[in-house]
Design a protein around this nucleic acid. Structure first.
Length: 194
DNA sequence: CGTTTGATGCTCT
DNA sequence: GAGCATCAAACGG
């Protein structure tokens, strides 16, 4: 199954299957170890609530579109759109295991003291990979944009941890956060168990 | 270790 | 004017 086909599915099914994929941007790369689903099943926590607007319009684009938004006025967060055009679904990439361009990441993230801290959060990984609002709306699957999502042949994680999404108030009980078990590169609070 | 708090910009009320 | 899909520095134990 191609990546484009996979991303066309429902966000809650797709999100955990993005674990293990490779994300590249601006001379650095990492393995996806933590994700969250937004916009599935009338999700009240999603930015897609209320339909397309100026900020969230790329969330309603085709599967594989990148949705980048500013968080708390300071950070950037990156999502990969799933489902059908107009549905408003996306997977928030929350953490990466750094693979390449470690020195570049370190210079972009001076506060990180250890490799485990370079990409262990949605704002942190965007800083480490230099992903900002200029990448919003580009494709991560057709090679035309600065950010690329690839299956590099690494076998997917044998198991996956599930838990509640981070930092939201509405629909906080939905178990729509997934992570690679025991990965030291996952953000806090850590997930454990199935 | 843990918890708390200020920064900062944009959208919506 | 409130509320964020966050982060890091500044504390206290």
């Amino acid at each position: 199954m191609s990546l484009a086909e996979l991303l066309g599915g429902d966000v809650v099914d797709v999100a955990p299957r993005l674990l293990g994929l490779r994300l590249e941007a601006n001379g650095a790369a990492g393995r996806v170890v933590e994700v969250e689903a937004y916009g599935g099943d009338d999700d009240p926590a999603s930015h897609a609530v209320g339909g397309p607007r100026v900020r969230n319009r790329s969330m309603f684009g085709a599967a594989g579109t990148l949705y980048v938004y500013r968080s708390y006025g300071i950070h950037w967060c990156a999502n990969v759109v799933t489902g059908r055009i107009g549905e408003g679904q996306a997977v928030l990439i929350r953490a990466l295991e750094p693979l390449e361009g470690l020195e570049r990441m370190r210079s972009r993230r001076p506060a990180a003291r250890r490799a485990e801290e370079l990409c262990d959060g949605p704002g942190k990984l965007c800083a480490a990979l230099a992903i900002d609002g200029t990448a919003d709306g580009s494709s991560v699957i057709d090679g035309s944009g600065p950010v690329r999502l690839l299956d590099d042949g690494t076998s997917p994680p044998a198991a996956v941890c599930v838990g509640r999404r981070v930092g939201i108030r509405r629909a906080a009980e939905r178990p729509w956060r997934w992570a690679v078990p025991d990965s030291p590169f996952v953000s806090r609070p850590r997930l454990s168990g199935p």
